[in-house]
Structure formats: structure tokens, C-alpha cells
Computed example of a mutant assay.
Amino acid sequence: MSEQHEGGCLCGATRYVFSGAPRFAIRCYCRDCQRVSGGGHAPQIAVGRDGLTVTGALKIHRRTAESGSDLEFGFCGECGSPLTKSTSRAPEIAFLYVGSLDNPAIVAEFKPVFEAARQPWDQG
């Protein structure tokens, strides 16, 4: 049996569970992730979409990234916490915001991406 990990939003109305280890972890500095996180970057893990189950209301916002990829951001339908992200460049995976994990300590190393958009005050 594969190990399961859980997470969810601030109010508890939307939860998720996924099985297995994250495929990889990123610290994204793109402007979209800065806006979603309210900070300089957004730490995320990639998990297989087929092993992810979301319960509760998930509000989806769609947009096209500067790179041309179609993006979907998933937020709790009640409190608005950012939970998921997906990209047309990798439809088989879903990104989860690390801060929404019940145990964010499962992630030790992050690969920085879109560093050209990194804010000079964000050294994290």
C-alpha cells in the first residue's frame, strides 16, 4: 500500500489526499504565483493527477500564462485558500501548494523556476 498524504484549506471545507511521494518540488517565482501566494514565490509539489482526490468545493480560475501555457488555479470555494494548479504542458500532474499540506515537512528540496521574475526582496 502506498503512503498517503493529506492537506486542505484554511477553513477545512476543501480537502485533498494523494498517494505516494511527490514527483518533484518547485519554488515558482512567476508573476502568477506571486499573485496567488501574495508573496515573492509559491512553493509547490507535483503529484500524479490519477492519485489525487479532492473533496469539497474547488473554485477554478483559468488563464493563459506568459509562456503560452493554459493554467488552472484551484481555490477553496468557501475561504479562497489556494490549493491546486495545473498546466497544459503537463496534464498528467497536479501541483499542490506546499503550505496547504497537513505535513509540509515532507518536502525537503525545491527547484527554483521562472527566476527571471524573482523580486529583488525575495531571497527565499
Rank of each mutant, 00 (worst) to 15 (best):
Pro22Met: 04
Gln4Met: 10
Gly68Met: 09
Arg35Asn: 13
Cys79Arg: 02
Thr53Gln: 10
Cys11Lys: 08
Gly38Thr: 14
Ala117Tyr: 11
Ala117His: 13
Gly124Phe: 12
Ser19Pro: 05
Phe18Gly: 00
Val47Pro: 00
Arg23Lys: 10
Ser2Trp: 06
Ser2Gln: 12
Gln123Thr: 14
Asp32Ser: 12
Val113Ile: 15
Met1Ala: 11
His5Thr: 15
Cys11Ala: 10
Gln119Phe: 01
Gly74Lys: 00
Gly48Tyr: 04
Gly74Arg: 02
Asn103Gly: 07
Gly39Ala: 14
Gln123Ile: 11
Phe75Asp: 02
Gln4Cys: 13
Ser37Glu: 05
Arg89Leu: 15
Phe75Val: 01
Ala46Thr: 04
Gly48Asn: 11
Arg23Asn: 10
Ser81Asp: 13
Arg118Val: 07
Gly80Arg: 07
Gly8His: 07
Ile60Thr: 10
Phe18Asn: 01
Ser100Glu: 04
Leu96Arg: 03
Cys28Phe: 12
Gly124Gln: 08
Val17Cys: 08
Trp121Thr: 08
Ile60His: 01
Asp50Lys: 09
Asp122His: 05
Leu101Asp: 06
Gly48Thr: 07
Phe24Gly: 03
Leu96Ile: 12
Leu10Gly: 05
Leu96Tyr: 03
Asp70Val: 15
Gly20Cys: 05
Asp122Asn: 14
Ser86Glu: 08
Tyr16Gly: 05
Cys30Gly: 08
Gly124Asn: 09
Gly74Glu: 05
Phe114Gly: 14
Ala65Gln: 07
Glu66Tyr: 02
Glu3Cys: 00
Pro104Thr: 05
Glu3Asn: 03
His5Tyr: 15
Ile106Glu: 06
Glu6Gln: 09
Leu58Asn: 08
Arg63Cys: 14
Gly20Met: 06
Ser100Ala: 15
Asp122Ile: 11
Lys59Gly: 08
Gly38Lys: 13
Leu58Ser: 05
Asn103Gln: 13
Gly68Arg: 10
Gln34Leu: 04
Glu115Asp: 10
Ala108His: 07
Val98Gln: 02
Cys79Gln: 06
Leu96Asp: 04
Leu58Ile: 10
Arg27Gln: 02
Ser100Val: 04
Glu3Met: 07
Arg23Phe: 01
Thr55Gly: 00
Ala108Ser: 11
Asp32Glu: 09
Gly74Met: 05
Tyr97Phe: 06
Arg31Ala: 01
Arg35Thr: 13
Gln123Trp: 06
His5Ala: 13
Arg62Asn: 15
Asn103Arg: 12
Glu72Tyr: 00
Gly40Pro: 03
Ile26Tyr: 00
Val107Arg: 04
Thr87Ile: 11
Thr55Leu: 00
Asp70Trp: 10
Arg63Phe: 14
Thr84Cys: 03
Thr14Val: 11
Ser69Ala: 15
Asn103Ala: 13
Asp70Ile: 15
Ser81His: 10
Gly7Lys: 01
Gly7Ile: 03
Tyr29Lys: 10
Glu78Val: 14
Tyr16Leu: 11
Cys30Thr: 09
Glu3Gly: 00
Cys11Trp: 09
Cys9Trp: 12
Tyr16His: 06
Ser19Ile: 06
